[in-house]
């Protein structure tokens, strides 16, 4: 076979290579570089090997933050996914109501994250916030800045308010993509509403649900801004999640080495979980047993 040399093709991939290099590869390698060195200042650095990794993995504060993170992500997935499906099922399918509902639902998604935190910071206050005030009127001693449980509930409700619409929109588009013939066929077969949901709608939604679960998992696992604005990670450390723990280490204490090591662990962990979710859901949907 004649091999023709054509180096021009390299120029075509060059823009992407440069873009990816600057946006991902170089920053990541910098972090890798930091994670194996102890740096005191410019020119004063020592290679420390895996010391930061071992120190980070042994840190009990990290273990707590990690468990808190798992609990938070698990909670919001368990609420947002079923709730999102349920809302999508009840949305109108034709008429002016469709656009009205979709616009209303999309509103929380359009808000900057720190604004969401600020809104809920005011909303949950017992003196001037509607929610806090209403709860206080009901005789509940609501105090999200003092009571860890109240802080938790507030953060979870805020996240549900902010992100369930994403799940709804994804599910709604998935539901609209099911041809009418499927519903007719179910009617002809004499299938009830539950059977229609279980055997037609849910299997047809697995594609969008995979995306919804992955997006919500990754996003919630990296949640930072909203709890930071709302509770600042407190009371105590009760709403300090992983990314805030990382930020405190890197920016607050300037422990760049351990923070870099932790970043890499964090990154690998998200990658691993996303892969697990993805394979699990695609297994279920293609019926591989």
């Amino acid at each position: 076979m004649n091999k023709t040399e054509n180096n021009k093709a390299w120029f075509l991939v060059l823009p992407v290579v440069i873009l990816v290099a600057f946006s991902a590869v170089i920053p990541l390698m910098t972090v890798v570089n930091y994670s194996v060195q102890d740096i005191f200042g410019p020119g004063q650095r020592f290679f420390v090997g895996d010391e930061w990794f071992r120190e980070t993995l042994r840190d009990p504060r990290l273990h707590e933050a990690f468990l808190r993170q798992l609990l938070f992500t698990g909670t919001i997935l368990a609420i947002q996914i079923p709730l999102g499906i349920a809302i999508a099922l009840t949305l109108p399918t034709k008429g002016w109501g469709v656009s009205a509902c979709l616009v209303l639902l999309a509103l929380p998604l359009l808000m900057p994250w720190n604004v969401v935190g600020t809104i809920w910071l005011i909303f949950a206050r017992t003196d001037i916030g509607l929610a806090g005030w209403s709860l206080a009127q009901l005789g509940i001693d609501f105090n999200f800045t003092g009571d860890p449980l109240h802080a938790w509930i507030t953060v979870v409700v805020m996240d549900v308010w902010h992100w369930t619409p994403l799940v709804v929109l994804l599910c709604y588009s998935g539901l609209r993509a099911i041809p009418d013939a499927f519903y007719q066929a179910a009617q002809v077969d004499g299938a009830g509403a539950w059977a229609v949901f279980r055997y037609i709608q849910l299997p047809k939604l697995t594609g969008v649900l995979t995306i919804a679960v992955l997006l919500r998992f990754m996003d919630s696992f990296m949640i930072y801004t909203e709890p930071f604005v709302l509770t600042g990670g407190g009371p105590g450390n009760s709403t300090t999640f992983l990314s805030q723990f990382l930020a405190t280490a890197a920016v607050g204490r300037f422990d760049i080495g351990p923070a870099a090591a932790f970043s890499i662990i964090y990154f690998l962990f998200i990658l691993l979980f996303s892969w697990l979710f993805y394979t699990a859901i695609t297994r279920i949907s293609t019926g591989t047993r």
């Binding site: 041809p179 007719q184 299997p203």
Partner: peptide, 14 residues
């Protein structure tokens, strides 16, 4: 009654 459609309508998970 039984009906067949233009689209291929079957239960996807069966």
């Amino acid at each position: 009654v039984a009906m067949v459609y233009q689209q291929f309508v079957n239960y996807p998970s069966f």
